[in-house]
C-alpha cells in the first residue's frame, strides 16, 4: 500500500505484485482484496493468512515467515522499479515502495530479535528488494503481473460505474490460473545469526 496519490495503473501493478508474491509463498495465502477511495488518494490492499501452523519461537521458522512477509511488503515497490536499473540506496527503495509498505518490511525484520541493528535491517531490505526486481524483470513474471493487473483494473472499473467508494473481493478471482512457477524463495542473511 502506498498512501499517496498515484495513477490507477500503478496502483493496480503494485497490488498485482503483492498478489503474485502471495501466490508463491508456502507460508501464507491471499484471502481478500480491499479498495477505498479516500479524499486525496486511493488505497488497495490484499489480506493474507498463514497457511500452516508456525513454530514462532523456533528462529528458523520465524525467520522464514519474516523473509516472505518482508518480500510481500516490498514487492509493490519492486514492481514499479525501472527495468534493468540496479538498486542500491535505501532512500530509492523507500521512495519506490512508499512509507507504509517500507515500514511494514522494517517492522517484520525488527521482529527477529530484540532490536537488531539498523544497518542489518536495511541490508536485508536491499537484498530482498533486489531479488524481487530481478524476478519481476523476467518475461514470465511480467506476463503474470500484467494479467493480475488487468483483472484488478477491471474489478476497480465497477466502482466507477456504480459510483462506489469501497470495494471488497475474494482475492481468488484476481489470481485464478496463476501458476506458482517462479523462484520466489527469500532468506535473511544477517539477523538469523543474531537470533540464534
Amino acid at each position: 500500500m502506498k498512501r499517496a496519490p498515484q495513477d490507477r495503473e500503478t496502483l493496480a501493478r503494485r497490488e498485482a505484485a503483492h498478489l503474485l508474491v502471495a501466490v508463491h509463498s508456502q507460508l501464507f495465502t491471499p484471502t481478500r482484496t480491499i479498495w477505498h477511495q479516500l479524499s486525496r488518494y486511493e488505497i488497495l490492499h490484499t489480506d493474507v493468512q498463514n497457511s500452516q501452523t508456525l513454530e514462532w519461537e523456533d528462529p528458523a521458522s520465524r525467520n522464514a515467515l519474516i523473509a516472505d512477509r518482508t518480500a510481500l511488503a516490498l514487492s509493490g515497490g519492486a514492481a514499479v522499479w525501472p527495468r534493468g536499473q540496479p538498486c542500491s540506496g535505501i532512500e530509492e527503495i523507500f521512495e519506490a515502495t512508499g512509507k507504509t509498505d517500507f515500514e511494514l518490511a522494517h517492522e517484520w525484520l525488527a521482529l527477529q530479535r530484540y532490536d537488531p541493528s539498523q544497518a542489518q535491517i536495511e541490508s536485508e531490505i536491499r537484498t530482498i528488494f533486489q531479488k524481487l526486481v530481478n524476478i519481476f524483470s523476467s518475461e514470465s513474471a511480467e506476463g503474470k503481473l500484467a494479467s493480475i493487473q488487468a483483472r484488478i483494473l477491471k474489478w476497480l472499473s465497477r466502482a466507477e460505474k456504480a459510483d462506489l467508494k469501497n470495494l471488497e473481493s475474494n482475492s481468488e478471482g484476481l489470481i485464478a490460473d496463476t501458476p506458482a512457477d517462479l523462484d520466489m524463495s527469500f532468506e535473511l542473511h544477517f539477523t538469523l545469526r543474531q537470533a540464534s
Binding site: 500500500m1 498512501r3 480491499i34 477505498h36 479516500l38 479524499s39 488505497i43 488497495l44 490492499h45 489480506d47 511488503a73 512509507k99 507504509t100 509498505d101 515500514e103 511494514l104 517492522e107 525488527a110 469501497n166
Partner: peptide
C-alpha cells in the same frame, strides 16, 4: 508500528479502517 512515534500503521489496518488514514 514499533510502536514508534515516527512510524506508519500496517496496510491491513488502513484497509480495514480507512478512517485511520485521516
Amino acid at each position: 508500528s514499533g510502536p514508534r512515534a515516527e512510524s506508519e500503521l500496517w496496510p491491513e489496518q488502513y484497509a480495514s479502517m480507512p478512517k485511520l488514514c485521516e
